[in-house]
């Protein structure tokens, strides 16, 4: 919201331990990652390797046990719960598996909700225009159950972009889609990443769509390696 310069996402030495007592799991183990604005980075890796944990940490949903997370130069690990929620609202866009849209809202309202969450937001994108940009203008008044999987993901992407986020985090966006739809959706992500100069991280199992990404990193047992 302020005039902070966009410098993207920086994770340094991030360690996250999950579970309690004897069976703690080191979900993230000294992870370093840097994503510049306009860059789409894919995270691949076997299931259970810590990919979702990485998104949770980068997206300020939870705080790491060690290390720091900076977004546009601001350390989000130092923030209170409430401040992190407000930071997510104003600076981070999430695209979840299969969209995770709200069943009661039409496609257009999914986007308008974002502007409604924050009363003082000044620079949000026009929901109707944005919906048109992702090719969903003709479905504006449909609810999620009336949309196909690919359409839901398009709305989900548009919803994540309404607030001009600095950071876009995407969790397995093509899990429920066929090949053609998968390519379209990831292409859209790549294109929006460039146009909006947002730092994007996408977790995926789908080798096919990696060609649209600027960089691919691999997660194994909580450690990150350049793939």
């Amino acid at each position: 919201m302020s005039s902070t310069e966009r410098t993207g996402l920086v994770l340094s030495g991030v360690t996250l331990r999950l579970g309690d007592g004897d069976d703690t799991v080191t979900a993230l183990d000294g992870v370093d990652l840097m994503v510049r604005p306009g860059e789409l980075v894919a995270v691949v890796g076997p299931s259970g390797s810590g990919k979702s944990s990485l998104l949770a940490i980068a997206g300020a949903l939870t705080t790491p046990d060690e290390g720091t997370v900076t977004i546009d130069g601001r350390d989000v690990t130092a923030m209170s719960d409430r401040a992190r929620a407000a930071y997510r609202r104003d600076h981070i866009g999430f695209v979840f598996q299969s969209g995770n849209l709200l069943p009661a809202l039409t496609a257009l309202d999914q986007l308008r909700l974002v502007t409604n969450l924050s009363k003082k937001r000044i620079d949000s994108r026009d929901p109707a225009q944005l919906l048109a940009d992702v090719g969903m203008a003709h479905r504006a008044d449909r609810r999620p159950h009336q949309l196909s999987g690919g359409e839901r993901q398009r709305v989900g992407i548009a919803r994540a972009l309404v607030g001009h986020p600095s950071l876009l985090l995407v969790d397995e966006p093509t899990a429920a889609l066929d090949r053609a739809r998968s390519h379209e959706v990831v292409q859209l992500l790549a294109q929006e990443t460039k146009q909006s100069a947002v730092a994007s991280v996408m977790v995926t199992h789908d080798q096919d769509v990696l060609e649209h990404c600027d960089r691919v990193v691999e997660m194994i047992d909580g450690r990150l390696s350049t793939g």
């Binding site: 997206g59 949903l61 409430r82 929620a85 407000a86 930071y87 997510r88 609202r89 104003d90 981070i92 999430f94 979840f96 995770n100 709200l102 069943p103 974002v114 969450l117 924050s118």
Partner: peptide
């Protein structure tokens, strides 16, 4: 689940 999504999107508890 919806509420978790809303919280992730940064909806404040009072909201």
């Amino acid at each position: 689940h919806e509420l978790a999504v809303l919280r992730a999107m940064g909806a404040a508890k009072p909201y």
